[in-house]
Amino acid sequence: MHGEPQAEHRWLRRLMGEWVVEAPSTEARATREPLYTGTETARCVGDVWVVCEGRMELLEHGTAINIMTLGYDPARQKVVGSWIGSMMTHMWTYEGTIDTAADTVTLDTRGPALDGTGITDYQDVIAFEGGDARTLTSRSRQPDGSWKELFVVRYRRVA
């Protein structure tokens, strides 16, 4: 079961490093108030997995900690991973694809609908903006099949 690193693994390794994070607060989404700030440390586990651990102070939740794992499964030809956060009980599991031309990875997942009506589709899209900046855009599937942007988190590499 030993897997040799693929081009997709090398692409994901670009997430490694120390990052400063800016994320919109609930209030900021409506009023354009200042953003929450935090940090993220991303490291490799072997040559085929990346683990990102983020920390941020949230007014309504105290210190929020989240952990994202990402890798590539050559047999499925998909990026696979997970996301957990200290502020919720749902574990998000990812399956996605890398678009090297757009310098993005789109991660599909399913989870609780924001209105509490069941389970719905979500996407997290990581987009690199050069080597030292990236965004994570989270969006949800709407009843008409379109995607609604929920928020954008900005990352700037510091080491």
Rank of each mutant, 00 (worst) to 15 (best):
M1S: 10
H2K: 13
G3A: 04
E8C: 02
W11R: 11
R13C: 02
R14A: 06
V20L: 09
V21P: 04
V21W: 04
P24N: 11
P24E: 05
E27Q: 13
R29S: 09
E33I: 04
Y36H: 10
T37Q: 15
A42G: 11
A42D: 00
V45Q: 15
V45L: 14
V45P: 03
G46V: 03
D47L: 05
W49P: 13
W49M: 14
V50M: 08
V51P: 00
V51Q: 10
C52Y: 04
G54E: 01
E57D: 10
E57A: 13
H61I: 04
H61V: 10
A64E: 05
A64R: 10
I65S: 13
N66L: 06
M68T: 15
T69R: 05
L70F: 07
L70P: 00
D73L: 02
V79Q: 08
V79S: 05
G81K: 03
I84F: 12
M88V: 14
M91R: 11
M91S: 07
W92N: 11
T93C: 04
Y94Q: 13
I98W: 06
A101L: 03
A102I: 00
D103L: 03
D108R: 06
D108E: 06
P112K: 08
P112F: 12
G116E: 03
G118I: 01
I119G: 08
T120N: 02
T120L: 01
D121P: 02
V125Y: 03
A127T: 13
G131P: 05
L136M: 08
L136I: 10
L136T: 07
T137F: 02
Q142G: 13
P143D: 00
D144P: 04
G145T: 00
E149A: 06
V152T: 15
V152E: 06
V152Q: 08
